[in-house]
Nucleic acid binder design. Sequence first.
RNA 1: CGCGGGGUGGAGCAGCCUGGUAGCUCGCAAGGCUCAUAACCUUGAGGUCGUCAGUUCAAAUCUGACCCCCGCAACCA
Length: 504
Amino acid sequence: MSKDKFYITTPLYYVNSSPHIGHSYTNIAADCLARYMRLNLGKENVRFLTGTDEHGQKIQKAADASGLSAQDFTDKIVVQFKELWSGLNVTYDDFIRTTEKRHVDFVQRSIQILFDKGDIAEGKYEGWYCTPCETFWLDAQVSDKACPDCKRALERISETNYFFKLSKYQEWLVKYIESEKDFIRPVSRYNEVLSFLKNNRLADLCISRPKQRLNWGIELPFSKDHVIYVWFDALLNYISAVGQFDERGKYTSKWWPASLHLMAKDILRQHAVYWPIMLKALDIQMPKTVFAHGWWMMGESKMSKSLGNVISPVEMAGKYGIDTFRYFLLRDMPFGLDGTFSEEALVKRFNSDLANDLGNLVYRTLTMAEKYFDSVVPAVSEKPKAREIQIREKLDGLPEVISLELCPETNYNFSACLERIWELIAMANKYVEEVKPWSLAKENKAEELKGFIRLLVDVIRGVALSLRPFMPQTAESILEQAGTDKINKGKPLFPRIDTKSADK
RNA sequence: CGCGGGGUGGAGCAGCCUGGUAGCUCGCAAGGCUCAUAACCUUGAGGUCGUCAGUUCAAAUCUGACCCCCGCAACCA
């Protein structure tokens, strides 16, 4: 990517069920980066794409189960996703659905190009099929010719399908990954993919499904009897949304190549193996970075609908506030690793970090400005003390520190950014004890008091500016209260949650 | 011998790559202060860094073996 443009994507979410905390996590992280880049590069130089993946058998089945047509069903779920994003202040620039014409046309064109150049060919697909479940199983997944799902007898079938020649590009991909250290992040994932590619021979990817089994999909342009495999269809969204092929099949785009494809670790394979090979075959540039983050675990176990431990992001944001939810997700687990979600942990973070540290600093600062200087922000001190100089250095250095943490090399470390900001907050809280402004007031040391209050106001302004990508509402609120020469104090930002009485 | 992550004071984690006083947050105890949301500040208690062996002057950190926990099929980032 060029350094003055930033194109970030999230996965296209599969709409066979409602959105949950994992979807929120990916999109909040993406939103944070998009907001950050907009502030630095200008709004017009940032593109943030999200959307939904709507084809395939699981969706067909989910639609059947709810008694709706596939189109009506997906229309309904898409609304839930869009509402969630606006409910979490996720500011995407474009939302693509794989059922949209712009995407369908693009996918058909792409696959025709690959077919014409010989990278897609007809072949036989053999495997096991469970008629009641309407599910295909590979040899490796099956034992005793029984369906892993329903345990009923499987049928051996062989059908005509189309295959994408992944193996043709395997060597190229290994070399490419080896030459581009930023291509897959974090490093543990980079090593994982590379060793996978070195130790396994890629099988050619079956990219079609016979219509007799499944017709909810994009039709193959060269076979009326087949639709396109969902992954092959879905991955193309990253380029279908921002560009097009000319007559000669050359892809042009204002935004491509993407700066960052963000996803969870479970779909890294598709993005780090299939996708680059698809692009290479289409003669299109590689994205700069593919980043796989970790999973949120629920207490001891994995999040699971059957265990009933799925957290509703809407409920969390509604109960504790959007910014609290964003803060918790971005702060509590290092980006790239797995973490544990619990409401108790969230409340703890709320009370200690947001109420006690940040909220209290803002509130006490504004109260003093109000009380000592009638809400007029005083001038910067002319003879700052050593400690004040130190705090100002930390404050001035914050943007640089954050920029170093929000890049592929440091794994887009949101948590570290927030830690750095909170270090400044802690310094300011300590400094209040050191200076004892209440004593200065009693002793009529107005000059000293002025410089001190101004320092605190500058700190909370700086904190607010740095927080904009992470906690947009909070940042705005602080700037509304303290952004101008006249303080406009409001209510405490994060009223402490009383856990002691709630426990019993 | 399928793959991967992890076992560090009461809880949750960092440190391990690039060996050398074991650090952070929360909780707990004592004290201070009053501008502030029973908030803030200071100090303190508390750890044989999963087990065993090896390398080394020196190991949480490197090597080997072993034990235990959790993900990797499904709904699913």
